[in-house]
Each structure stands twice: as structure tokens, then as C-alpha cells.
């Protein structure tokens, strides 16, 4: 039995979560949900997903700091981070990549594209 890959989706917008959860469940992933930074880090520790779909604008912590935190934790550093944000400035994108993200996707996004890219990223593991 193929183990389902675990991905974590972090966003404070419930409707985004709704769509993304359905999307990736449909595509055979095990989907974990976090609505804020605290929940996120918690789940990361516990579940060690292979990839995180990370929103940036969130209430308690923004995505950048979460990414930074994860990438600087040795045993978590291998987790792939995909930023998913409405922030589209060049500086934001650059920052994201500098912090070690594997991908930066701007909202609104194409579901088909997103799935393809996530699949690519999670295949090689």
C-alpha cells in the first residue's frame, strides 16, 4: 500500500482551506490543516509532513517567520515549503526563496497548476 504523503495546509481563510483540502485529498494526499502559526508549528513537530502550503498573511505569525523557524530546525529542514500568498511584490517573492522555499505561488492561483507542482515536489522523496 502506497503511504499517502502528508501535506500541511496553513491559511487563516476558511474558504481557501475548504478548496485546498478537497483538492489535495482528491489527489491522494493526507491533508493536515492549521489556521495559524501556532497550530502549524505544533503539527509540524508532531506529524512531520513532507510539504507545507504556507500562507503569509496570518494573524499571529506571518509565513516568513514560520518558514524561517522550520528551516532553521535541523530535523525539520527537509520539509518542503510552498508559499501561497496574495503578496505578489518582487521583494516578497525574493524573500520567500531566500528563506528556502521550494516554490512561491501567488493568489489567485490555478488549482491544476498547483496540484501538478506539488506532485512534482513530493515525488522525489
Amino acid at each position: 500500500m502506497i503511504t499517502k504523503s502528508k501535506i500541511l495546509i496553513v491559511d487563516d481563510d476558511p474558504y481557501i482551506l475548504l478548496s485546498l483540502e478537497f483538492l489535495f485529498k482528491k489527489n491522494g494526499y493526507e491533508v493536515l490543516i492549521a489556521r495559524n502559526g501556532t497550530e502549524c508549528l505544533d503539527l509540524v513537530e508532531k506529524e512531520h509532513p513532507v510539504l507545507i502550503l504556507l500562507d503569509i498573511m496570518m494573524a499571529d505569525m506571518d509565513g516568513f517567520s514560520i518558514c524561517e523557524k522550520i528551516k532553521s530546525t535541523p530535523n525539520l529542514a527537509d520539509i518542503k515549503i510552498v508559499f501561497l500568498s496574495a503578496k505578489s511584490k518582487d521583494t516578497d517573492i525574493k524573500k520567500g526563496y531566500d528563506l528556502g522555499a521550494s516554490l512561491y505561488v501567488t493568489k489567485p492561483f490555478s488549482t491544476r497548476e498547483l496540484v501538478k507542482q506539488v506532485k512534482t515536489l513530493t515525488e522525489v522523496s
Binding site: 481563510d13 481557501i16 475548504l18 483538492l23 505578489s88 493568489k107 489567485p108 490555478s110 488549482t111
Partner: peptide, 25 residues
Amino acid sequence: LYTVTHELRTPLSSIRALSEILYDN
């Protein structure tokens, strides 16, 4: 301007995503 467009993108994101899902499934 930036903040406004950012705020607009969020609902738009959901609308697009869900519309695509409906279409593809």
C-alpha cells in the same frame, strides 16, 4: 493600493479555486 489589491485577491482566490474544482470534478 497594495493593501486593497491584496485584500481583493483573497476572496478571488477562493472563487477561482472552487470554480475550478467544480469544473474539474
